[in-house]
């Protein structure tokens, strides 16, 4: 991979470009990182920046999200390494457990699919969606799709946002008939089902 392709994708470039850290701060962090390296400690620059108080939690998230989005857009090999199914299984679990009717769950699935198109990697948009959902439909379960979306996009991993949420929508819709069973389905059942599904997926891989 040519070196130019990596320019702008490195944490050191991003923190300055996003305006979170100035050149002097970056130099200071790089020096600390170098000293740690000489002592045999392989510290990540982003951790050093945060420990020095040059980067707060939110800024760190934004840097990571930005880097991951750029990795995807640059189509760099290895940039699409986040295939963990936990995120979308949990994203599906939220509306399935929160909404009581099959139609409601299907509606949540549709909102997730539309949301995937609307947010396009912007996690704060899911926050706005949560607010709008609760405003538009009195009764807080309306916020369930937004909570599910936040689950799928949080932790700075919107790398495969659309895929994640579309899978979540499909799984949510698939779970809807479970509500029709003549037994009381509680979150406990969903948790066990989610655990089994994840273990099975790993085994298959």
């Amino acid at each position: 991979m040519p070196g130019d392709a990596v320019e702008g994708l490195r944490i050191r470039d991003l923190v300055v470009e996003l305006g979170f850290v100035d050149r002097a701060g970056l130099e200071q962090a790089l020096e600390v990182q170098e000293e740690l390296h000489e002592q045999g400690v392989n510290a990540h620059l982003i951790d050093v920046l945060q420990d020095l108080g040059l980067l707060d939690d939110d800024q760190r998230d934004q840097v990571v999200i930005n880097q991951e989005m750029r990795l995807v857009l640059a189509e760099i090999p290895g940039g699409r390494r986040d295939h963990r199914p936990e995120r979308w299984v949990t994203a599906a679990l939220v509306p399935a457990a929160l909404i009581g009717t099959p139609l409601g769950v299907l509606a949540a699935a549709a909102v997730l699919a539309i949301g995937a198109w609307l947010v396009r990697g912007q996690t704060w948009r899911w926050v706005a969606l949560g607010w709008l959902a609760a405003t538009a439909v009195p009764g807080t379960p309306a916020a369930a799709p937004a909570a599910a979306g936040a689950t799928g996009t949080a932790d700075g991993a919107p790398r495969e946002l659309a895929t994640t949420l579309l899978r979540a929508a499909a799984l949510t819709a698939a779970l809807a008939p479970v509500r029709l069973l003549p037994v009381a389905v509680t979150p406990m059942h969903y948790l066990v089902a989610a655990a089994l599904a994840l273990a099975l997926l790993r085994r298959l891989r």
């Binding site: 929160l98 949560g130 916020a143 949080a154």
Partner: peptide, 17 residues
């Protein structure tokens, strides 16, 4: 519920339900 950082928005919204 969604005022905290984004990573806390999901459980906060669920607990607001």
């Amino acid at each position: 519920a969604t005022l905290p950082p984004v990573r806390a928005a999901a459980p906060a919204l669920v607990l607001a339900a």
